[in-house]
């Protein structure tokens, strides 16, 4: 039977971008408030899953042509590299630091290495979640 999901598809096209924006907001809010790489990553994965529900897996593959296993590995690597950085500087493993910088447009901004670690977590979560969901959903 051919189902008609024109409403779902139309809504999804708009809502996916809202969710993605919100996930970026959550990712950056995580530094001082509830949020962070983990939740942001889950939210991004949720957006992609919504796409998968509204359209199908082939569409997802075409729209987001990345290998999510690689995304997971890249995320883990980034998180690990921030840890390895502390080995090079001879401070305890996973130590993090921050500083205030005067950036153009943004003005005085606090930049922290913990955000890099969080970026790794974000990518790893997106990668793992999508790998799991795609491998469950692939089979018919």
């Amino acid at each position: 039977m051919k189902t008609n999901d024109v409403i779902l598809q139309t809504v999804a096209k708009v809502v996916v971008f809202l969710i993605l924006t919100f996930s970026v907001f959550l990712f950056f809010a995580g530094h001082n408030n509830p949020g962070g790489g983990f939740i942001g990553g889950l939210m991004t994965a949720a957006a992609l899953v919504l796409l998968a529900l509204a359209f199908d897996l082939q569409t997802i593959r075409k729209v987001v042509p990345v290998d999510f296993r690689k995304v997971m590995a890249i995320g883990l690597m980034i998180a690990l590299l921030t840890g390895i950085g502390s080995l090079v500087l001879d401070v305890p493993f996973l130590s993090h630091t921050f500083g205030h910088f005067d950036l153009p447009l943004l003005g005085d901004t606090e930049l922290a290495t913990a955000t890099l670690f969080d970026l790794g977590v974000y990518l790893a979560v997106v990668g793992v979640t999508m790998t799991i969901i795609l491998s469950i959903g692939e089979d018919h």
Partner: peptide
């Protein structure tokens, strides 16, 4: 760390 980095590299 050594096996962990290795595992990620292998992926």
């Amino acid at each position: 760390l050594i096996p962990l980095v290795t595992a990620v590299l292998l992926v």
